[in-house]
């Protein structure tokens, strides 16, 4: 991957909530799909000058990754804090970390 995106990482519940403000357009689809209502609007602004999302508004995150799946812009990545975890991809592709100095 030739480009990199900066993440805002929030620890919440069982997951690390990585949010990429350069990708988030503030559509709110993830807020509606969250089963524990932990996602809500943040103060930070995203790609279109609209608020981005953050966890910590309802019950703690259960790392179900529904928000990651439903995001049309791939702006969310949920990492499980216990390290194990189901595959991040629908197709069990290996996780892509980008190493940089």
């Amino acid at each position: 991957m030739s480009v990199t995106f900066k993440a805002i990482t929030t620890e919440n519940g069982k997951g690390l909530f990585h949010l990429f403000p350069a990708l988030c357009k503030g559509c709110g689809l993830c807020i509606e799909k969250c089963p524990v209502d932990t996602i809500g609007w943040a103060k930070q602004l995203g790609a279109f000058g609209t608020p981005v999302v953050e966890p910590g508004h309802g019950k703690p995150c259960i790392a179900c990754k529904k928000c990651q799946l439903v995001c049309p812009d791939a702006a969310i990545w949920i990492e499980r804090r216990d390290g194990k975890g189901r595959d991040t991809s629908l197709t069990a592709a290996p996780e892509k970390h980008v190493q940089h100095k």
Partner: peptide, 8 residues
């Protein structure tokens, strides 16, 4: 070398 989170 830090491993930064990237979009999936």
């Amino acid at each position: 070398m830090a491993i930064a989170a990237q979009p999936q």
